[in-house]
Design a protein around this nucleic acid. Sequence first.
RNA 1: GUGUUAGUAGCUCAGUAGGAUAGAGCAACUGCCUUCUAAGCAGUAGGUCAGGGGUUCGAAUCCCUUCUAGCACACCA
Length: 564
Amino acid sequence: MSKILIDIIENIKKEINLSINNSIKKNLLISYEKNFDINIEIPANKNNGELSCNIALNTAKIFKKSPKQIAKIILNNSNFCDFIEKTEIAGVGFINFYMSQKFYSEVLKEIKLKKQDYGKINIGENKKILLEFMSANPTGPMHIGNARIGILGDCLASCLELAGYEVFREYYINDAGNQIEKFFKSLDIKYRQIYSEENIEFPEDCYHGENVKELAQEFSEIYENKYINSDLKTRKKILVNFGLNKNINKIKSDVEKYKIVFDNWFSENDLYKDNKVKEIIQKLKDKDLVYESENAVWYNAKKFGSEKNEVLTRQNGIDTYFAADIAYHYDKFKTRNFDICINVWGSDHHGHISRLKNAIKSLGINDGNLKIVLVQFVRLIKDNELIKMSKRTGKSIQLIDLIQEVNLDSIRFMFNLKEPNLKMDFDLGLAVKQDFQNPVYYVQYAHARICNIFKSLNDEILKEYENSDINLKNLNSNIESELIYYTSLYTLEIIKISRDLDPTRITRYVINLTKIFHRFYNEKKIVISKNKDLMYSRLYLCECVKIIINKILNILKVSSPEYM
RNA sequence: GUGUUAGUAGCUCAGUAGGAUAGAGCAACUGCCUUCUAAGCAGUAGGUCAGGGGUUCGAAUCCCUUCUAGCACACCA
């Protein structure tokens, strides 16, 4: 468990509360019953210490003293652990903490000991999370927005695992409902067009993408005109099966090319096969939330403050996506017993959140355990021009097109740079052309530099380094302290990622870490044969930084080159 | 129209459970390789945090309001 810094922060909070209580007993502060929520932060400016507390400012009114007086009383009546070198009262009354040399040494020892497990914490308490993401429609190829969602979801899963959750990654295949009817209709017409002399019209509301045409073509190459005159039911079954299989396999292979991993591919159709959709409608009916009107079955969402009610079963007898989605989430929570469900959705689904939450709440599920991460659309820019990606026009930029132009390291890194819930412009020209400007190389370069240092050492030195007792107290310059301190913040980052469900923080963290490392590298010579004691300490530090960079690049599934 | 997300340097973005002098990268300019990798480092310049109110010791961050933009408001998924 890596949590030196976390422990110190907790210790400070406890000690300050203790100090306040003691001061009250000694009549130094006026009586107040509650324990305070102590806020410890990392100051933006290094001159304000490594940790800082604003408790004296927040309690000035309560204690009717100036913040500085309160801070002084608190410090006089407290005794912090030996990881704290000194404290000071600064500015308008902040209490600032400076770390001791022991702290720096212990952080490095922990990294070296835990290696890739450094940063692991257990705030998740092994709770089971079902993380559903990507879930692109199988009626056509995936577009670039799906790539962003896939990469963010994949990375979020890894981060949550680090935070101590048990994460199950799932892809929901929408292979049922109205859209499958539409998919069949589109395929069927394209298929018949191939063999018909007459001009069969292709309706506006069908899928206009190239994909449908290609599928019909492939189908006809295998079966020729065998099914042209079959009855509707037979034709539908064979065409839909053929099309879905092809598309889903394509999705699976594309996903693999992006190194995105799923534990399970959940078929919407299975919900129907197992009668789970009808069961859920019945359950809602039992709770008096369902009524029939205009030959459709409705869910009474207005009861929960919605503006309008929702259809569960259409006039044509087909259940809606909404009905299936309730059944799907019931299955996640109640049948498969997940503690928390996280869905990574395109932000165009945001309207769906409240009605789904209301629906599962009415089935006795705590809707607070359903969390939605919204991901906004990606626009692709090339030569300052917007590349459209409408599925309907058939000229969409597919997910697979991108990987043919830009290398995967770069794609994965770039998509992990910007917060999910912000729209993003992906500059294709820049990503391809100007490799050296890309932050991914900046980070990888630091890794390669460290590898190179170790490669330059001969076996004898390496052996001595491995076996000697390293004096980490040598690492006492500003830049070394700063670098070590930053490595200790890694755990805090993992906590914030699981709190905000924003994996992109880790990318920004590793960029900052490498920035400090590059600065250190320029400022301090590492291989110094005259002073082996110092050299080994610095090698130790390099090794620790390398461990973290490597770990984060692994999370991002970006390669860690040893040479560049 | 209603809901929702946003607006921070020329460009791309960090920073929001209120904190100290608002930060990076790119682009511009100036330096640093006989030295562990210059895909690097150091420095200069660049700001009415969209506008206006409010809350308080303190606001880019919270509240109200105006403006601008994306998205959603289907018996699509």
